[in-house]
């Protein structure tokens, strides 16, 4: 027996366990039965049709896209600052400052959203798409910072100095040398933040007021068994979209690494 064959079998089983529930999504999204149960009835695309015709879902989609696009741009911009500062400069209080920026990574979202909600309510701020963007930017920022730090870190510092030496200013060196080299990281960060925001539920649930997003819409429909097949169709779409976005993000991350000539250490985290 090949060494590790037992481990390999276990790992494959584990992957199956990870994916099994997700694989049920398309199965029931295309099943003509109105309840999610075996045996399967027939093939249908009616749940997708129903989904595309649903006006409140379209509104939720619009909101989700607005939120995801804005949050990913804001988080990536803030991430660029944080990553550049942490990889290139030493400044007093660096550890605690970076710790605070990365804190949303480990803070339960319920704490983040409830505390933000309480403050917004007492300030009399109307809960809208904007307030969700505020929260999503916060939780995407650490991910963007991590991804961008990897990108900035793989840059040899003398590349920047070489540009100064060859007559460039601080800004033109950034534009001509650093930006092109970290661009894959920026794209990767945008896609990753977009995905996180698109799928995020808790913050949207507390901070969106009456504005639905895709996850809060799904949550609100779970009470109605009639709607479940359509939710399965919607879930299928969301998962497919996430996988595509992640694959593209991973592609750019790897291209970034190849570009700067470093070796791949693998993984997002």
């Amino acid at each position: 027996m090949k060494p590790g064959a037992g481990l390999r079998a276990y790992a494959l089983l584990y992957l199956l366990f990870l994916y099994a529930p997700i694989l049920l999504l398309p199965v029931f999204a295309f099943n003509s039965g109105t309840i999610i149960a075996f045996p399967l009835k027939g093939f249908t695309t009616q749940w997708f049709t129903q989904m595309f015709e649903n006006a409140s879902l379209r509104q939720a989609l619009g909101n989700s896209l607005t939120i995801a696009v804005s949050s990913s741009i804001f988080a990536t911009c803030l991430g660029i600052f944080a990553a550049r500062a942490s990889t290139r400069f030493d400044f007093p209080g660096k550890g605690p400052v970076m710790g605070l920026i990365m804190l949303p990574l480990v803070l339960p979202e319920i704490i983040v959203s409830i505390s933000l909600l309480v403050v917004l309510l007492s300030l009399g701020v109307q809960l809208t798409v904007l307030t969700v963007i505020l929260g999503h930017t916060l939780i995407c920022m650490p991910y963007a910072t991590v991804i961008l730090s990897t990108a900035f870190n793989s840059l040899d510092r003398s590349l920047e100095e070489a540009a100064y030496d060859l007559g460039e200013t601080r800004w033109s060196a950034f534009r001509l040398v650093i930006l092109p080299l970290v661009m894959p990281g920026i794209i990767s960060s945008l896609l990753m933040s977009f995905t996180i925001s698109l799928d995020e539920f808790i913050i949207a649930f507390f901070l969106a007021g009456n504005e639905p997003t895709l996850p809060t819409y799904i949550y609100s429909q779970l009470r109605f068994p009639k709607q479940i097949p359509m939710i399965m169709a919607l879930g299928t779409m969301l998962v497919v979209l996430s996988v595509i976005l992640l694959t593209v993000a991973e592609y750019f991350r790897r291209r970034g690494i190849a570009k700067t000539g470093a070796t791949d250490s693998g993984g997002f985290l």
Partner: peptide
């Protein structure tokens, strides 16, 4: 640095990885 009559060859060479050889050599002629 950019206004000094000196140019530097770095220990790591600092070749811009996203540019071709000619673009690297011509970088300072912008």
């Amino acid at each position: 640095a950019k206004r000094r009559p000196t140019n530097m060859v770095f220990q790591s060479y600092a070749i811009f990885p996203h540019l071709t050889v000619a673009e690297n050599v011509g970088f300072g002629l912008r």
